[in-house]
Design a protein around this nucleic acid. Sequence first.
DNA 1: CATGAATGAGCATTCATTCAT
DNA 2: CATGAATGAATGCTCATTCAT
Lengths: 190, 190, 190, 190
Amino acid sequence: MRTKDEVKEKMILEKALTMISKVGLSGLKMSILAKEVGVATGTIYIYFKDKRELINHLYLYLVRKETELSFENVYQDGSFECKFKSALDKYIRRVATNPEVQIFFEQYARSPYNEGDNDAIIEEENKALRPLFDLIEMGQNEALIKNISSNLIIMMLCGAVGELSCQVQHLNQTEINACIDMMWDAIAIH
Amino acid sequence: MRTKDEVKEKMILEKALTMISKVGLSGLKMSILAKEVGVATGTIYIYFKDKRELINHLYLYLVRKETELSFENVYQDGSFECKFKSALDKYIRRVATNPEVQIFFEQYARSPYNEGDNDAIIEEENKALRPLFDLIEMGQNEALIKNISSNLIIMMLCGAVGELSCQVQHLNQTEINACIDMMWDAIAIH
Amino acid sequence: MRTKDEVKEKMILEKALTMISKVGLSGLKMSILAKEVGVATGTIYIYFKDKRELINHLYLYLVRKETELSFENVYQDGSFECKFKSALDKYIRRVATNPEVQIFFEQYARSPYNEGDNDAIIEEENKALRPLFDLIEMGQNEALIKNISSNLIIMMLCGAVGELSCQVQHLNQTEINACIDMMWDAIAIH
Amino acid sequence: MRTKDEVKEKMILEKALTMISKVGLSGLKMSILAKEVGVATGTIYIYFKDKRELINHLYLYLVRKETELSFENVYQDGSFECKFKSALDKYIRRVATNPEVQIFFEQYARSPYNEGDNDAIIEEENKALRPLFDLIEMGQNEALIKNISSNLIIMMLCGAVGELSCQVQHLNQTEINACIDMMWDAIAIH
DNA sequence: CATGAATGAGCATTCATTCAT
DNA sequence: CATGAATGAATGCTCATTCAT
């Protein structure tokens, strides 16, 4: 008996992500996904009850993965401004390197696959952004960052980063730095 | 009589927008759309060759409408900063009042209906944002705004506004003003 | 516009009956049924929401049809015994001529398509058997038929008729008459 | 060890019978059957080549079992009428106690699993009914039972018993006796 | 022998589009 | 022009059967 293959499950999810980022959620055809993964159609249904469950699992899978990776290895030394900008840079690069994730999240948020439970999404995303929240609060405590609800701050930063990451391939380091500077100026106390 | 026809065409487009913002592009069923509009399925095909054309027409229709409305009646008096913030406020409110448009644009950008011609979208959007571009350039000429590519500036602002507008219903005027201040600080020369 | 065709609906039901009697309920394939009827697959779904509804409608359709036809034109003259035997004869012949109906009812009764609502079936069947019930009660009032619950009497007669009708093609009139005599003897007061 | 295997084979057949009587032949899913039995799907295919063979074996298994059990221990003393009625009573009870068997036979007779060989079924059933045949012939020799083809007589009795057994749970002994009396009157010479 | 993951043909159902009225 | 019944390709999902372990 072949044992249920965790690697295979991951392959299905990863391939699904790639396909969704190209053709959208509704463009994801189970049979084509199976072919891409190199398994039979039915095999996918061993790992996921149906398309909805596949997509919801993909969402959770990505949130968890992002949580782990997003802000690891942020520089711990230097001034606060330095740390913050380094974190933003890391974040932008991460999002830019995995635009499919960003695209998928956008698609998912507006889809019937997300069972109206938008709060759950927001909460999970907050978890992934925990380090950024912490950094901001730290800055606020040190009177380096404006004393505005961190939700508002994160919202603006995320919006900007999201938009930025879509175009990051067309940008050079100087431009990215300029953007990071803008973000810093937006929230810093001068 | 031609008048009635144009009304019907507009009704189809508007209803389509509403439906797409709720169920997504692929969730838009031609027969249901027809029912909502109060016409027969076939009638829609008199006005639009197929679903793709309907959606592309909707895109153009919205771009034009937004261009007209987005920045009209911006305050012309007061300091530059005052004018700029007023323009942003207007923009945020406009986007917030018509979230369907924002949602549709997001959906459209990533869809197979948009024939890979993402540049065309960007160009049209730029047209709609012309007044904002002009304002920024004016500010740069007066050395009030950082001398960064206006594309970058717009990108950040739009990202922030987009994210903001999604939540605007949960925000009070003070919070919105705080965000506008952040945006201004991001791009202004201090 | 073509108007929804009552004849077509009937054709679908009749063809479905024929097919079910040959291959069973689960053997009924919507696409093949469509081909047999001479329409596209989708057309069937215009008239019936899904396979379940098709089958349930078929059931009601047959019950009504049988109700109308089962005992019409029963001899009104002659002795009671004569009338009764004539009614039975008619009934046996009807069932024998339309074995598909009998087969379908059997299949339906035990199927997941019959939504557990077996009482509804029984009630409808009773309606179809009304004339037979009346006849029996009449006989009981005249002290010609045993004073047993008419339900029991009907049950036995139906069981016998059902079994008989399956074989009726292999039987000659003498044999059928012998059976009818047995049925009469079973219930008559001697 | 062979013993254990036969037990497992029997378990598969018995569980299949139970399931079929509930969900029908087509409702029987091999994987679910396996789960119910407590073995792996593949195991069933060690004992039966495929679903068809499983069902055909089940049929034979039941016919043999019924033959053994149906008429054993029929009272040997008393008048012929007494013996006959006792036999019928036994038969009704047996059928009533095992309605799944009755249901399965009905399903099987009309199914594509029974390879058109309906005569074979009838023959096997006749074998099971041998004791009843014998009893009837004995009665005919003693001029107690009508001189009608025993096939016809059996047919009527079986139809009646089948119908009766479906309802037997709602019937009390008096009612069952009334039915047995009717059956006797149907075939006896008065 | 036993297991249950893997297979893929097969089927119910949907929905964009057409066309007879 | 307007209608909505008809079409049928496309798709999600099932399940009998196989086979690697």
